[in-house]
Design a protein around this nucleic acid. Structure first.
Lengths: 238, 238
DNA sequence: CGGTACGTTGAGTCATATCAACCATAGTGG
DNA sequence: CCACTATGGTTGATATGACTCAACGTACCG
């Protein structure tokens, strides 16, 4: 029992380290979380929840990376977002009281805490600061979704791929050799950009020829951020 | 003064008629809203707010229709959603405390109430039921945005156009002759679907040839809902 | 060693964008 | 009252980005 507890992250310190949204809770509420939550570990490829199912709680990521995606009618995944340490997933379904509109799968081995739906509801009810922060979070994600819609609707695949690479740099960072810290298959990249795997492959090797990136299997080294920005039209149409 | 007041909708009755989110407020809070809000009228083409600006409050639609859109780098509009009687817009920016990520323009002449940001914040803070309903709303919109992303990324223009027509039927209804109640330019339709105006025109006339719709200038008569559903792949790939 | 998943490349096709011309309608101003 | 202009709608011709299909290479794994 003691040994087990040592491995389980405490919400208080986790919130501090990872900047999780639980930092807006009172000490007693954090205490309550620690008591109510369920600690879980997952390996790459594991599925946390599945689109269409009613879910009984939400997840706070302590470590690892998760992809959140929808499955199109022809079975193709569309990646909606990633979640990493300090972020929560599945709260949307809990709060809107709808079945899950996405599935979640592990990209990098994860340690997560599962928190029952009632707890989230009661926290929102009893802590108005926390409620506001949750609203802020949801509204921020909504803004990002709106940008994403506009990009997919208006930009070319080439522009979107460049943009996604920059987004991944921003979100997950580079190692000391300028390699992207997150490692995705070509298919996963395609499922973010909204294109075919082959298109990603071709464009990446174009980017390589243009000295924008270097490719080493699944690892991508960013050589020319400015160049990618120019292609992605984050600033202005080239 | 008296005459003016007669025209200004009262939040209490408006919430009842239009099912606005303010139905979750207490009587005193509704009273406060009536006192603090500012009544405004707009004509087609008027702009309520503009992307990139900080906004000092949000809008509750009493009548009329508004389009909420983002402007792509090349100036093309992407319509994100519509708002009609009983719905609120611009709350996203207020709650996330970010500048507006969209612009809003009038499609059909509107009567709206403008409510200062502080009021929204204080309502969320003091009324936990209302806070939960706001969360529900934001989370629901987030779910819709996710579906929209997947559709645009994976479906063809033809499929999307059929789907959007059905969406408009659902959201705005048909008149007694089965004409869509909302009237949009071809360009606006294109800016929802995420395509070129000419493509919408061509596809609409294909739909006409296939006896799915009838066209009368800007008015669109729905002849075969089932057929449109089949094309849109709401159910399964044809 | 065979199998499975992933990556790559080429060729051909097609949906959709783009460009251009033209028509219809309505509002404006002389 | 009529030419004038602007806006929206339509159609055709052409170009091309991106998808699909297919074959093959590569690497890891039991």
């Amino acid at each position: 029992m003691k040994e087990k507890e040592l491995n389980i992250p405490l919400c208080g310190s986790c919130a501090l380290e990872n900047g999780a949204i639980f930092k807006h809770l009172t000490a007693e509420q954090v205490q309550m979380l620690n008591f109510e939550k369920e600690f879980r570990q997952y390996k790459r490829g594991d599925e946390l929840y599945k689109e269409g199912n009613r879910i009984s709680g939400f997840y706070c990521i302590h470590s690892g990376i998760i992809k959140v995606f929808k499955t199109g009618f022809d079975g193709k995944e569309q990646i909606i977002r990633f979640a990493k340490a300090g972020e929560i997933i599945a709260y949307r379904s809990v709060l809107s009281n709808e079945v899950a509109c996405t599935s979640a799968k592990v990209i990098e081995d994860c340690m997560v805490c599962f928190i029952p739906a009632e707890i989230l509801i009661s926290l929102v009810r009893t802590n108005s600061t926390y409620a506001l922060e949750m609203l802020k979070l949801a509204c921020h994600e909504l803004g990002e979704a709106n940008s994403f819609i506009t990009d997919i609707a208006q930009k070319t695949v080439r522009e979107r791929l460049a943009e996604i690479l920059l987004f991944l740099v921003n979100d997950f960072g580079l190692d000391d050799e300028n390699f992207l810290k997150i490692s995705l298959t070509r298919e996963e990249l395609a499922n973010i950009v909204g294109t075919a795997t082959e298109s990603v492959i071709r464009l990446l090797s174009e980017f390589k020829n243009d000295q924008l990136v270097e490719l080493n299997g699944r690892r991508i080294k960013i050589l020319d951020k400015r160049g990618l920005e120019k292609i992605s039209n984050v600033l202005a149409r080239s």
